[in-house]
Design a binder for these strands. Sequence first.
DNA 1: AATAAATTGTGATATATATCACATATTGTC
DNA 2: GACAATATGTGATATATATCACAATTTATT
Lengths: 242, 242
Amino acid sequence: MITFATTKTPMFEFENKKTTCPDCKDKSCAAAILSREELEMINFNSHESVVKKGEIILHEGSLTSHIIYLKSGLAKEFVKPTPESEQILSIVKEHTYLGLSSLFGDRINHYSYSALEDVKVCYIDIAVFINLVRKNGNFAYEILVSVSRDSLNNFHRFINQLHKKIYGRVADGILYFSRIIYENTTFSLPMSRQEFADLIGVSRESATRVLIKFKDEGIINIKGHLIEINKVELLEQISRKG
Amino acid sequence: MITFATTKTPMFEFENKKTTCPDCKDKSCAAAILSREELEMINFNSHESVVKKGEIILHEGSLTSHIIYLKSGLAKEFVKPTPESEQILSIVKEHTYLGLSSLFGDRINHYSYSALEDVKVCYIDIAVFINLVRKNGNFAYEILVSVSRDSLNNFHRFINQLHKKIYGRVADGILYFSRIIYENTTFSLPMSRQEFADLIGVSRESATRVLIKFKDEGIINIKGHLIEINKVELLEQISRKG
DNA sequence: AATAAATTGTGATATATATCACATATTGTC
DNA sequence: GACAATATGTGATATATATCACAATTTATT
């Protein structure tokens, strides 16, 4: 059996865990197929924590010491191409591992993650995690499915982004929150206009202009962060056209 | 042990294999750790073929029946956002599996692949491949490493593309072929100007203008498809600046 | 509740690149 | 080798969006 480098101690203190891994109701699909013994092993080598809105969960460039599981809440995955600009790659929902591709890629975190609202995370020792992958092919298969689906989803969004003009991008962004994140035509945008612009790859002023135009045209209603889609089909058409 | 749906018969005839899998000198890193028995099992359930330049290896939208291994040559991975436009996502070198993320994602091919020159490919039955993943955690781990690294590499290119202007994109494109594909400052671009433009996400005329400008400024030499980089540091600076 | 800081929305202007048209060069087919 | 088809390079023009400046609004802090 292969073992790995010792894990690094996180810099901040953990809250005591309220639920053990075997009894956890927020397991990932992959974890759900693990045996009780395997879950106990994870339980013994992991910690749960609450991260407050706006706080960094994982830094780009840092060494992966733990695999981080987003138990509840929303986070944003982003990079800073320059010190004063930020590009948001995707929004991460609950029941998702953060940085899997970085872990298996080269052990360095390629993206940063921060909490968009107060979130619960579990830090799982990577030696234990990797050992489970190597020993349990079915578990490895489920992790492969996760990494693959994340990759496909994010690629599709990037491909769309690359060939669409600003109206299509704004429409895509709105539909992303409606369809993928909240599964509702009414939702509260969990970020500033600047962050929304960073997600869809346009300037803040341009994003605001188009949002206001969609509002003036009755396609959506806006009240601060609250967004309500009135004309779904029209928005989808704008999304398709680009 | 779990087994999967029967594989579909490929539409075209295979050439007889010249080398068995255990004796193959072009194995992937993952395949290199398989036992002789496991390699014999793959050998028994796979075929080798030559695909000519310009021919499609795998169609977007098709159902995955085989995992395809690029034994030698170059291919391009692309999508067609509209019937008359094409976006090249990446260039695939030899010793790479095609469409791994689609296989593990949802069994439908999300991208198309075509040969940029005559290539050799092996078609491996996916039931056998997936069975090996489930049974051999170390093999699964290596496949995870492959999928993760592909994902990281392609994401980085997309992130760069999204925030760079045209000069940075052309510089990136040239350096991509020099550093990643050919590992040489002199190489023959294995595609038309239109395809190069499709890879970096600009119009054909704009790509040509910048290439000619780089040539006029002595940064590169161009002779048809042949490109020679004269000022690597300057090109890298342009690449960084975007 | 007052105040400071940050965010948002708007107007004006600058600029980067796409698009269009077309001549020339290169490649493929017979 | 001749000819057709495709690719390339260039000039002119259109257009989309970024940038800048700043007033108004909202949020955070005390």
